[in-house]
């Protein structure tokens, strides 16, 4: 039996974990080769396939109460999965996000990154997950009342629906609501109308998020609520 399957558009990881992000921007999935003793933490049900002798343990997402908080306010699950390679050879774990779209890896070096609800996918040891108050402005702009704070030293994987666009912000920048995925701590969120009162509500943009400060922001090219809004009138 032969297959002409070749790997399309793969990105080798350069951080702490070894592996590749495969499947192009449309359908990214991540192959991680865990070295003996290495561990990987993912959100629940992210694993799609793995070597049978990799150990899986479920743990509360950073303790019971903060796990609960993250579930109800952070849009993440109560439990997280921890995959550990207790064998003496390299073992593979493949994981993916539930929606089609791009996955990226960010290697933190004693840094902090804020992720929007649902964007977190996986991380290596050394990355700490926390929840922090994002404010009512974030809530009104449909970005969630809380945001996930990932900090420490290690790799963090996050994903979105559609492709991911990166933008270095210096000053202010405008992002449509529900399109923001991640931003660095130097950036803060403000809410405003896209244009004047007329163009904001008739031009289809409505409220937008204004980001201010200095740092990198990551924006998704599509949004699930946009897809649902398009589908709804059709049924």
């Amino acid at each position: 039996m032969n297959s002409e399957q070749e790997d399309l558009h793969e990105v080798a990881l350069k951080g702490h974990l070894s592996g590749k992000i495969r499947g192009s921007q449309a359908f990214s999935y991540v192959d991680i080769d865990l070295e003996p003793g290495e561990s990987l933490t993912t959100e629940t049900d992210a694993m799609s396939s793995m070597d049978a002798d990799v150990d899986l343990t479920a743990a509360f997402n950073g303790g019971f109460f903060s796990g609960l908080a993250r579930k109800f306010f952070g849009g993440e699950s109560l439990f997280i999965s921890r995959f550990t390679n207790n064998t003496d050879q390299s073992r593979r774990v493949t994981f993916v996000q539930p929606n089609p779209g791009e996955i990226r890896c960010k290697t933190l070096n004693d840094e902090t990154l804020y992720l929007q609800p649902g964007a977190y996918l996986a991380s290596s040891d050394g990355v700490k997950l926390g929840l922090s108050w994002a404010g009512f402005i974030s809530f009104i702009s449909r970005e969630g009342l809380f945001r996930l704070k990932v900090s420490g030293t290690g790799d963090v994987f996050y994903g979105a629906y559609g492709a991911l666009l990166e933008k270095e912000v210096d000053g202010e920048y405008i992002v449509d609501t529900s399109h923001l995925v991640a931003y660095e701590p130097g950036v803060s969120l403000k809410l405003q109308l896209a244009g004047g009162l007329f163009s904001s509500f008739f031009g289809g943009e409505g409220l937008v998020t204004r980001v201010e400060g200095q740092g990198k922001i990551v924006v998704q090219s599509r949004s699930i609520s946009g897809l649902a809004g398009w589908l709804n009138p059709k049924f």
Partner: peptide
């Protein structure tokens, strides 16, 4: 993994285990 409880709490629940020699083709999503 090793534990039924962890497999369920981890959201994986029941999974398919393949044994032997051959190829399985998986869909990423």
């Amino acid at each position: 993994g090793k534990s039924w409880i962890h497999s369920f709490l981890g959201g994986e629940g029941l999974v398919c285990k393949f044994k032997g020699k051959g190829t399985v083709w998986c869909q990423s999503h």
